[in-house]
Amino acid sequence: MATKKYTVTLPEELAEEIRQEVGSGGFSAYVTRAIQRQREQDRLGELVAWLEGEHGPVTDDELASAEAEREELESHFAEQGEQHRKAS
């Protein structure tokens, strides 16, 4: 992927915290990943808005059902991982 240098203005404290965490060579990669994640979030937000426009907002019951299913799947995969570790 081609790259191009840009100048951006960031709060100094934030920029220094990031530079200390990732080192000077990792700063651009960190910012690139952050922008990519933000773009994904923006697109997901647009999709949710479109879906809610087409089908109406998600109800509390639907959210509770989805959360219960997520917890069940999380538990299932945690058990599988534990069984795999024991077998190894």
Score class of each variant (00 low, 15 high):
Arg70Trp: 06
Asp61Thr: 13
Thr3Gln: 13
Glu16Ser: 14
Ala66Leu: 07
Glu82Phe: 02
Ala49Tyr: 02
His84Phe: 09
Glu17His: 11
Leu10Val: 13
Val31Asp: 00
Lys4Ser: 12
Lys4Thr: 13
Phe77Val: 01
Glu71Lys: 10
Ala15Asn: 05
Val48Pro: 00
Thr7Ile: 10
Glu82Thr: 09
Glu40Lys: 14
Glu46Leu: 05
Arg19Glu: 14
Val31Pro: 00
Glu16Asn: 15
Gln83Arg: 13
Gly81Leu: 09
Ala34Tyr: 13
Thr9Ser: 13
Ala78Thr: 12
Ala78Glu: 13
Trp50Leu: 12
Gly53Ser: 00
Arg33Ser: 15
Pro11Met: 09
Thr32Asn: 15
Tyr30Phe: 15
Leu44His: 07
Glu46Ile: 03
Ala49Glu: 10
Thr32Val: 13
Gly25Ile: 08
Leu51Met: 10
Ala15Phe: 05
Glu16Leu: 15
Leu73Pro: 01
Glu72Tyr: 06
Glu54Cys: 03
Trp50Ala: 12
Glu16His: 11
Ser88Arg: 11
Leu47Asn: 03
Leu63Gly: 10
Leu44Val: 07
Arg39Tyr: 00
Glu69Cys: 02
Glu54Tyr: 00
Ile18Ala: 09
Leu14Pro: 01
Ser75Leu: 01
Gln38His: 11
Gly23Trp: 02
Asp42Ile: 08
Glu52Ala: 03
Arg37Trp: 02
Gly25Trp: 05
Arg39Pro: 00
Leu47Val: 14
Glu67Asn: 01
Glu71Thr: 04
Leu14Trp: 11
Glu74Trp: 03
Ala87Ile: 08
Glu52Tyr: 02
Gly56Trp: 00
Glu17Phe: 10
Gly25Ala: 14
Ala64Gly: 02
Ala66Pro: 00
Thr3Pro: 03
Glu54Arg: 12
Glu62His: 03
Thr59Asp: 00
Leu44Ser: 05
Ala49Thr: 11
Ser65Val: 01
Gln38Thr: 07
Leu47Arg: 13
Val48Asn: 04
Thr32Gln: 15
Phe77Gln: 00
Phe77Asn: 01
Glu62Cys: 01
Arg33Tyr: 11
Gly25Asn: 14
Glu16Gln: 15
Glu12Pro: 01
Thr9Gly: 05
Ala29Tyr: 06
Pro11Leu: 12
Val48Gly: 03
Glu82Tyr: 03
Ala34Asn: 08
Lys86Ser: 07
Arg70Ile: 07
Ser75Trp: 00
Glu21Gln: 15
Trp50Asp: 09
Arg39Gly: 01
Gln83Ile: 03
Ser65Tyr: 03
Gln20Phe: 07
Thr9Ala: 09
Trp50Asn: 07
Arg19His: 06
Val48Gln: 10
Val58Asn: 02
Glu40Pro: 02
Gly56Gln: 03
Ser65Gln: 07
Lys4Gly: 04
Val48Asp: 04
Glu52Leu: 03
Pro57Ile: 06
Glu17Ser: 12
Val48Leu: 15
Glu74His: 06
Ser88Cys: 05
Lys5Ala: 12
Glu40Ile: 12
Asp61Val: 10
Thr59Lys: 02
Ala64Ile: 02
Glu12Leu: 11
Arg85Phe: 05
Arg39Ala: 10
Lys5Ser: 13
Asp42Phe: 06
Asp42Gln: 10
Gln38Ala: 10
Glu40His: 14
Asp60Gly: 08
Leu10Lys: 07
Arg43Asn: 08
Asp60His: 09
Lys86Gln: 14
Arg39Cys: 01
Glu79Tyr: 01
Glu17Val: 15
Glu17Asn: 11
Ala66Ser: 05
